[in-house]
Amino acid sequence: MPDHYCPDCDVEMEATTATAEGVGDLYIETEREDGILKRLGVESQTPLTALLCPECGLTRFYADIPE
């Protein structure tokens, strides 16, 4: 995954783990007939990567979209 920088602090965000109790990996459901995700080639369940700003705590999720 390319480097991502916090839009507020301009420091490199760090990979982190986001979990929900009783749930394994996080992913997005993308089962759609049409729409932007289908046009991007995103499958029905796409894994998410969580990144955290070590300065302010901003957390962002990124879908692992194949190129």
Rank of each mutant, 00 (worst) to 15 (best):
G41T: 10
E33H: 10
C53M: 06
E31C: 07
L51N: 00
C56K: 05
T16W: 01
L58F: 07
E14Q: 11
E33I: 09
T49V: 15
D34Y: 06
T17S: 06
M13Q: 06
D3A: 13
P47W: 05
E29H: 08
T30L: 03
E29T: 11
L51Q: 03
Y27F: 14
Y62V: 11
E14L: 09
T30G: 14
A15K: 09
E14K: 10
Y27N: 01
E55T: 10
M13E: 03
T16H: 01
Y27A: 10
K38S: 13
P54E: 04
I65C: 12
Y62N: 11
G41M: 12
C9W: 02
F61V: 08
P66R: 12
A50W: 07
P7L: 07
D64C: 13
Q45W: 01
C9R: 04
T46E: 05
Y27C: 07
G24R: 09
Y62D: 07
D3R: 08
D34C: 09
T59L: 13
T17C: 01
D8G: 03
E29S: 11
L37Q: 06
E12M: 00
T46A: 07
A63T: 09
V42C: 14
M13S: 00
E33N: 09
Q45S: 10
L40F: 04
Y5V: 09
G57K: 02
L48S: 06
A20N: 05
A15W: 00
M1P: 03
E55Q: 13
G41F: 11
V11K: 01
E29K: 15
P54H: 04
R32E: 15
